[in-house]
Nucleic acid binder design. Structure first.
Lengths: 169, 169
DNA sequence: ACTCAGTAGTTGATACATCAACCAATGGGG
DNA sequence: CCCCATTGGTTGATGTATCAACTACTGAGT
């Protein structure tokens, strides 16, 4: 990795603006979630995945692989959500190690209530600010950046975490 | 505030790709920091700001305003960094409430060591993956998104947090 | 000079993410 | 059949971010 290849002033400006935008966007969406549905963005991701799953339940490892999280993050978050009655754990018949994470009626209500507001916020905060060509460029740009990170990470740690490349929509 | 304005399939695709990219980028940069300099991204931000300040010291409120953080976040982080010997607090002569946060020799060494690797990572992970036109578009796009968020937030909370609009480079 | 609203900063509670260590069950190769 | 590396999941420690409550000080208006 070459040292001393600093960024130009204009690159620094772009990077700074992009950085601030990302932070503000995350924050705005978090606040919107909290205000409108009492969920955090992470909780929404889990509930959303469960809501789309057959029987409205998933194995913990499948949540982790689908969203690209560590298993321990899922476990902790599910514990908190279970305490709040949004999800429930159930034993797994076919594999005594595992357990199913299922959506409760409360959880289903919460996620259904949240979806509309979230999509509206994404439109309002993000897509409404885009010019037509921006979206397509951003799609390709995102792919290239993810590739660059994947390759760079592979150089350092040959055992790849390929699960993170998976789509999770 | 219109409800029921869902996103089209292609918009969802763009959003998902952009989302994954942001997460992976943050993660990659965090890992790079940790591996190369033992700092977190937050610690780097503080040390970097201090390193550029007159006398290599800043008031806590100025760190907060500059980076766009809450004062409590600064206080907690500075406490941890003080424990590790990266910064030191000193009394403020002109305002008995406040205190100066100053860079220690260790802190200065740490940030100098970190800067090169960080900029190289930003280049490698991000700018190398951009096409020439991307950068300029992204700059304008970021500004428009930040504006959209600012306006939207104002609708809900008329008392604006204008500090967050400030530049922090 | 006094009051008091606002400012500077700290602290504790809670939530969240990561890491490492752990336990229990699985299942393939000997 | 048994061993054992692997897998699925939990747990506790640590670091981190946010919020609300608090103390101490400041400075403007009277």
């Amino acid at each position: 990795m070459s040292e001393s290849d600093a960024l130009s002033d204009s690159e620094l400006e772009v990077w700074r603006a992009f950085y601030v935008m990302r932070r503000r966007l995350d924050r705005a969406l978090d606040l919107q979630f909290q205000r409108d549905s009492g969920l955090s963005a992470s909780e929404y991701e889990v509930l959303f995945a469960l809501n789309d799953a057959p029987n409205r339940q998933l194995r913990s490892r499948d949540i982790a692989a689908g969203i690209g999280w560590e298993k321990s993050r899922v476990s902790h978050l599910v514990s908190r959500m279970e305490r709040r009655g949004l999800v429930a754990r159930a034993e797994c018949e076919t594999d005594a190690r595992g357990s199913w994470i299922g959506l409760t009626p409360d959880g289903r209500r919460a996620v259904l209530r949240a979806i509309g507001g979230h999509l509206a916020a994404v439109r309002r905060y993000f897509f409404d600010a885009l010019e037509p060509e921006d979206a397509e460029r951003l799609l390709r740009l995102s792919g290239r950046v993810v590739d660059a990170i994947g390759c760079a990470a592979d150089e350092d740690a040959p055992a790849g975490d390929t699960a993170l490349h998976g789509d999770a929509a």
